[in-house]
Amino acid sequence: MPLHPDYPLPDVDDPVMRPFWEAARQHKLLLQRDRRTGKAFWPPKPLYWNGGEVEWFEASGRGNIYSYVVGDEPFLPAFKDQLPLIMVLVEVAEGPRLVGYMINCKPHQMSFGMPVRVAFRDLTERIGLPVWEPLRSAD
């Protein structure tokens, strides 16, 4: 499906977020962690934070639904083809919670705690958007 001209595209050149979006373009999900404690966190910090104690790492891409909402009209025109849109808060296996939306899933199939895995939607040549789909037992 073609991208709506008004789709709210992320600024992939943001100095803090650039590694995240560069990886997402290659369909990899990066998160940040504290180099000392190994604890993952979100949102990311600048790499100079606290004398350079943070690093990006590739996440498992697995998580569970922490909360969700289902949006319908009136909505941003850019999402009209996707309504009703299941927007989710995913608690990823590494700990933090990420905002996303579901694909390959209907609202009535949603439940709290349900396992999900990351997928990527190529919005433009430069932008792959991490989205989520149900993790089926065969996966």
Partner: peptide, 21 residues
């Protein structure tokens, strides 16, 4: 409803997934 520019800074953490209302 005006959100259609390049989404910058903190908004880029939720708006590209439609979470804006």
């Amino acid at each position: 409803a005006q959100e259609r520019e390049l989404v910058k800074d903190d908004k880029a953490l939720h708006v590209p997934w439609g979470l804006i209302r």
